[in-house]
């Protein structure tokens, strides 16, 4: 009974109105103390990096039937033992969210829009859309504003930018193009991405620009599926491939899949001087400075030379 009563306590006096990615204007507490994230590998990761007090996070089910906070675990060691389970991915039970007694809920527009009204009866709800075509840094900044962590964000951004500048060594990299590329070995398609979390954070900070092929991506989304047969026309200074470590994939899995779908493509690009990175998706897909720093660290000396 007590926790239901708590949920109806008035919000802290200092409160601000913000507009979320689904277009709702929401009054949020100035410095939320109990945030529930319903997007494990985007919002939970951001929260962990910005020291937002997480009252719970959504998690996925592994093949053993365990719960697992994708990326939150790999990057910041989030588990359902140290961060209570707020929902099973795609099956949000509002009662479970309510039992965590949050003062702010970060939902994701894909999964939770239908349940927005229910969740809003528990605490202010902000819908996040990590693939709405906005640059990942902007989305991250929104998250920092929503959770009252703008100062932490700015400090981390400045430190990260300095690191990127050191890495660039004063070179003008505006001619350096980058392309996150996914492959589907079953139907032989490629997915090109314009905004790809930590990858974009890192490459944008260096001053690099998205490859020409990203023009194929429609407005308002972050990726497009194309036939592998257009591979011949893809060029980039840095090509970023990823693999899902948590599903037992390795760099070799992805490489083999490319070799099968577009034989000789990777070697052909290497021959042209393209740098090919092959990174765990759990670490670089979420938008985080930690993951972005790993992208920087993976770049060889003199890339895009």
């Amino acid at each position: 009974m007590l926790r239901y009563a708590l949920a109806f306590l008035p919000l802290p006096l200092a409160a601000a109105e913000v507009t979320d990615h689904a277009g709702f204007a929401v009054t949020v507490p100035d410095a939320p103390q109990r945030v529930v994230s319903l997007h494990d590998w985007v919002a939970s990761v951001m929260a962990a990096e910005l020291d937002v007090p997480l009252a719970g996070s959504s998690a996925r089910v592994t093949d053993d039937g365990d719960f697992y906070i994708r990326s939150g675990f790999e990057l910041f060691g989030l588990t359902v033992d140290n961060t209570p389970l707020a929902s099973v991915h795609g099956q949000t039970d509002p009662e479970r969210v309510a039992s965590l007694n949050p003062d702010l809920i970060i939902g994701n527009s894909g999964d939770n829009l239908q349940q927005r009204e229910q969740l809003a009866s528990i605490a202010p709800v902000l819908m996040m859309d990590p693939e709405n075509g906005m640059p990942p840094l902007e989305i991250y900044r929104d998250f920092a504003d929503w959770t009252g962590r703008r100062d932490v964000f700015d400090a981390k951004l400045a430190a990260f930018q300095a690191q990127a500048d050191r890495m660039a060594q004063g070179r003008d990299l505006s001619g350096c193009t980058y392309l996150p590329l996914l492959v589907n070995g079953r139907d032989g398609t490629l997915t090109i991405a314009s905004d790809y979390g930590g990858v974009s954070l890192a490459m944008d900070a260096l001053g690099a620009v998205p490859a020409e092929a990203t023009a194929l991506i429609p407005d308002g989304v972050a990726r497009a599926n194309v036939s592998a047969e257009i591979a011949g026309s893809l060029t980039a200074g840095v090509l970023i491939l990823t693999h899902l470590q948590s599903r037992d994939e390795t760099a070799e899995t992805t490489r083999a899949e490319f070799e099968q779908v577009v034989p000789g493509f990777l070697d052909h690009l290497s021959g042209q001087g393209t740098v090919i990175l092959n990174l765990p998706r759990e670490r670089v897909y979420p938008t985080s400075f930690k993951g972005a720093a790993e992208v920087l660290a993976a770049l060889p000396v003199g890339f895009c030379g």
Binding site: R60, V61, T62, R70, V88, H89, G90, Q91, N184, G185, R186, D187, G188, A228, L244, R247, Q260, V261
Partner: peptide, 25 residues
């Protein structure tokens, strides 16, 4: 599928029936 939809990322075509370029494998 909802338990971890990312695990089925490459299988959507298969789920509704499709001839993928590499089904011959």
């Amino acid at each position: 599928m909802t338990l971890d939809s990312d695990a089925f990322g490459t299988m959507i075509g298969w789920l509704v029936g499709d001839i993928g370029n590499f089904d011959h494998l």
